[in-house]
Simulated assay, not measured.
Amino acid sequence: MAILRRAFPGLAVAALLVRESRAAAPEALEELLARHVVLPEDGVSRVRYAAWKASAADMAALDAWIAAAAAQRPSAMARGEAYAYWANLYNALTLKVVLDRYPVRSIRDIRSTGVPFDPRQFIGPWRTRLVTVEGRRMSLDDIEHETMRPTFRDPRVHYAVNCASIGCPNLWPRAWRAGTLEAALDEAARAFVNHPRGAVFRADGGLRVSSIYKWFQEDFGGSEAGVIAHLRHYATGELARRLATATRIAEDAYDWALNDAATLS
């Protein structure tokens, strides 16, 4: 084999790329998610952070997956593959950020580093540059707001990435894959919209929605009417019936508490 590598150096490069691709495959990440992400009866996914952090093997496996993913070239991927790649990388990095600092009550207790003149450094870790992809050092904000949102122009990006909070759309115990991406994104959208933290009518008839729809209203039609139209598209049952005549949003809310499985006990 060594003789072949010397005679055909391109074979060594190809073999390395194959190994990196396998190491960063969705299956490798999914093994970790399946082991540590739970979906209780209340419909809000949680992470077994304590158990994950206590496992040196699983901590090392997450680091290895991130390193292998960072070595890939998303610019050369087809749209669906790139979409799944960025969503998986974002979620894996968020998990690592929390696990490295766990225990914490909220991801917002973790400040950004390396950005001394950025006032947003104090409200969470999203500005810290965590990974280098194709020569660019990137933060979580770079991935979500500078890459995924402008590239894919799909409001379902907000259902694909998870910010380790109760108020966020669920982190699923599976990885995103290009082949099942469309169906999985729609499933995630329906799950969130039809959960009270996505949209719910108050006792007085007012519509309360997740603050996600306020913060990123431009992605959901650019107006309250656009947000309501988006909700109608995914709503079912009684929520769909009441949204049919809804014309305004009364309030928005968001729960920044950590999505920690320990809070279930």
Rank of each mutant, 00 (worst) to 15 (best):
A7V: 06
A7P: 04
G10M: 04
L16Y: 06
S21T: 15
A23D: 04
A25H: 14
P26C: 05
P26E: 00
A28R: 15
L29I: 14
E30M: 08
E31P: 06
E31W: 08
L33Y: 09
A34P: 09
A34L: 11
V37R: 14
V38E: 14
G43M: 04
S55E: 03
S55Q: 08
A57K: 12
A57V: 13
D58I: 13
A60P: 09
I66S: 02
A71C: 02
R73S: 01
A76V: 08
A82T: 12
A82M: 03
L89M: 14
V98Y: 09
L99E: 07
P103W: 11
P103H: 08
V104R: 00
D109I: 01
R111F: 00
G114P: 06
V115H: 06
V115F: 00
P119W: 11
I123D: 13
R127I: 01
R129M: 03
L130Q: 09
E134L: 10
S139T: 09
D142S: 12
E146C: 10
E146G: 13
E146A: 15
T147R: 10
M148A: 02
R149W: 07
C163A: 11
A164F: 03
S165V: 04
I166F: 01
W172N: 07
P173L: 06
P173V: 01
A175Q: 03
W176P: 04
T180W: 06
L181T: 10
E182M: 06
A183Y: 04
A184L: 08
E187R: 13
A188Y: 10
F192I: 00
H195C: 09
R197H: 12
V200E: 10
R202P: 02
G205V: 11
S211Q: 13
S211Y: 10
S211R: 15
W215C: 01
W215M: 05
Q217A: 14
E218D: 15
F220I: 09
H230W: 07
Y234D: 02
T236D: 15
G237Y: 12
L239W: 09
R242H: 15
L243H: 14
A244L: 07
T245H: 06
A246M: 10
D252K: 11
Y254E: 02
A262P: 08
